[in-house]
Computed example of a mutant assay.
Amino acid sequence: MSKLGDFVLGHSKSIIVISVLVAVFLAIGMTKVESAFDIEKTMGRKIPYVNNLLEICETELGSLYSYDVLIEFKDNDEAKKPENLKKLEEASAFVESLELTKRTTSILDIIKDLSQTLNENNDAYYAIPDNENQVAQMLLLYENAGGTESEYWIDYDYKRLRLMVELKSYNSGTAEKELAQVTTEVQNLFPNASITSVGSIPQFTTMMQYVVDGQLQSFALALIIIAILLMVVFGSARIGLIGLIPNIAPALAVGGVMGWLGIPLDMMTATIIPMILGLAVDDTIHFINHGHLEFSRSSNYKDAINKSFRVVGVALVLSTITISANFLVYTTSVALSFVNLGMLAIVGMVLLCLPIYL
């Protein structure tokens, strides 16, 4: 540790240049981090349940998740008007053009099938009729013939329409954007109707984004508070800001690695940075405070640094090795979330010690 102290003091300029370059590289990677929950990227195919689920979803019949878009009109009989049904067709086409959508289902399928059947199975008639009475008669004929599926897509008063959207894959970040796009597009098509996205997917997506965003906001707030406390503890704004560098470095390292490796920021990975931040504050105060104490005794900067390396440095290295060894166990898991947790925690631990020493 004493030799390491001499090396740092003897190559300070080179260390600063390399540190800045590495920080820039990691900062670029941090901009690539995606705030999302993706079952394949988060859990991985090594888990039998996840693998079976994804294999079924990749078939023609299977779908991973689904949600519904509910269109509610102000008056009865609005839902069976041809102009509104054709708008629903436009909405369905828009939804099917989105990245996550596998297919859509609605009352349109029943009406189009009936129209084609009543016209000698001519493909040209697989469309919404222009006459409202004709649509009403088709729906009545369908019900009299024993059809029961129409009640899933349109209510008895013809006031509500339901569009079911099945997903071929799921990513909470992409899903949040697509749900907002769908709501906006459908609302534009039906300006006088109430549009609602219903089902577990909109709720789960919102919950996931709230959790991740909350973690990021908490980290930012904690960093501000820590900066103030370091200034108070060391009695100097300059030393407090210097002490903040080792606290930012682990977050920058973890975020950069996640961005370059394509690891999403989900509920599991979002807990790593706040956890390492607590360790960083403790190590920073120990090292800088001891260095300040030794300098006040000897008034020699080199001796103060060397003694800090020998006394506090050993404890920091051993504690880092011990904690990293514990987190290394997570990398043996079949679940990618635990592998990522172990790997990123070790990266954060190592990058926590380096800025303190350098």
Rank of each mutant, 00 (worst) to 15 (best):
Ile225Tyr: 03
Ala325Pro: 09
Ser66Trp: 12
Leu53His: 08
Thr42Glu: 03
Asp213Thr: 07
Gly256Phe: 02
Leu54Cys: 01
Ala280Leu: 06
Asn119Tyr: 01
Thr59Asp: 07
Lys87His: 14
Pro246Trp: 03
Thr42Val: 05
Thr148Asn: 15
Leu9Met: 14
Asp75Leu: 12
Ala304Lys: 05
Val314Met: 11
Val165Leu: 01
Ser218Glu: 05
Ser66Asn: 10
Leu316Lys: 02
Met1Trp: 13
His286Leu: 15
Asp157Glu: 11
Gly214Thr: 00
Met343Asp: 06
Lys87Pro: 09
Glu96Gly: 07
Ala36Asn: 09
Ile226Asn: 01
Ile276Arg: 01
Asp77Phe: 15
Ile272Ala: 02
Gln217Lys: 14
Leu26Ser: 05
Ser324Gly: 08
Leu9Ile: 14
Leu21Ala: 12
Ser218His: 05
Val350Ala: 10
Val182Cys: 04
Val17Met: 11
Gly291Trp: 08
Lys74Leu: 13
Phe25Pro: 06
Val233Asp: 02
Ala145Gln: 11
Asp130Thr: 04
Val69Leu: 10
Pro48Lys: 10
Ile248Thr: 04
Asn188Val: 03
Asn171Trp: 00
Gln137Trp: 08
Tyr126Gly: 04
Leu189Phe: 01
Ala249Val: 10
Leu4His: 08
Tyr156Pro: 09
Gly10Asn: 11
Lys81Arg: 15
Ile226Gly: 00
Val69Arg: 04
Arg103Gly: 02
Gln203Pro: 01
Asp213Ala: 15
Lys74Met: 15
Tyr210Thr: 10
Lys80Pro: 09
Thr59Met: 12
Glu166Met: 10
Tyr67Trp: 12
Phe295Pro: 02
Tyr126His: 09
Pro250Met: 01
Val233Thr: 05
Ser333Cys: 09
Lys168Pro: 04
Val33Met: 05
Val329Ile: 15
Ala180Leu: 13
Asp282Lys: 15
Ile356Phe: 08
Asp77Ile: 13
Ile110Met: 01
Pro355Phe: 13
Gln137Arg: 10
Phe7Met: 12
Ser298Lys: 07
Thr205Asn: 13
Val232Asn: 03
Ser66Tyr: 15
Leu252Thr: 06
Ser333Gly: 08
Phe94Met: 12
Ile28Tyr: 14
Ser63His: 12
Thr42His: 03
Pro264Ser: 01
Tyr158Thr: 01
Glu132Gly: 11
Thr320Tyr: 02
Asn119Ala: 05
